[in-house]
């Protein structure tokens, strides 16, 4: 099949697209640095009270605030379980860690629109709680 475009042109176009977005990316990365310094793992762990319902919502919020690799959320989630935090809360925490991100909200709104960002994050927040409860309930039913 004959192509009218050259790959070099496509590459250049993609590169320009990324360069145009550099201020957004640098801003998010800058915020990630600040969050990692000012919001510690201990601070996140201290948000849990022991009440399963409240802790599930807290887990979602804490996961949304936290930044870092998903692996860290598993390690932290494991520690929280050992501290007696409910499975629902820990599940919500590890899910929200990846699917929600307070730090990247301004960037998401800039790129994909404010309306989309609001609706997507509200739906992701609700989904995280529903998936967490459903997972733990199914797990309990299977045992």
């Amino acid at each position: 099949m004959k192509r009218k475009r050259s790959f070099a042109k496509s590459l250049k176009k993609a590169f320009i697209g990324l360069v145009a977005m550099l201020p957004t990316l640098l801003a998010v990365i800058g915020l990630v640095g600040l969050f990692q310094v000012f919001i510690s793992k201990e601070m996140l762990a201290s948000m849990f009270t022991g009440d399963p319902v409240r802790d599930t919502i807290t887990g979602t919020i804490a996961g949304a605030i936290a930044v870092g690799q998903a692996l860290i959320s598993y390690i932290l989630g494991g520690e929280l379980l050992q501290q007696g935090v409910s499975m629902c809360a820990v599940t919500a925490f590890i899910l929200a860690w990846v699917t929600l991100g307070v730090v990247q909200l301004p960037a998401e709104a800039e790129v994909l629109g404010v309306r989309f960002t609001i609706y997507r994050n509200i739906l992701a927040f609700i989904s995280t709680i529903v998936v967490s409860v459903a997972t733990v309930w199914t797990l309990g039913a299977l045992r």
Binding site: I16, A20, M21, L22, P23, T24, L25, L26, L34, E110
Partner: peptide, 15 residues
């Protein structure tokens, strides 16, 4: 080329 997120970056620099 129009840069995206300049105001956002400025806000982070202020922080």
């Amino acid at each position: 080329m129009k840069f995206k997120g300049v105001k956002f970056l400025m806000a982070v620099l202020v922080l």
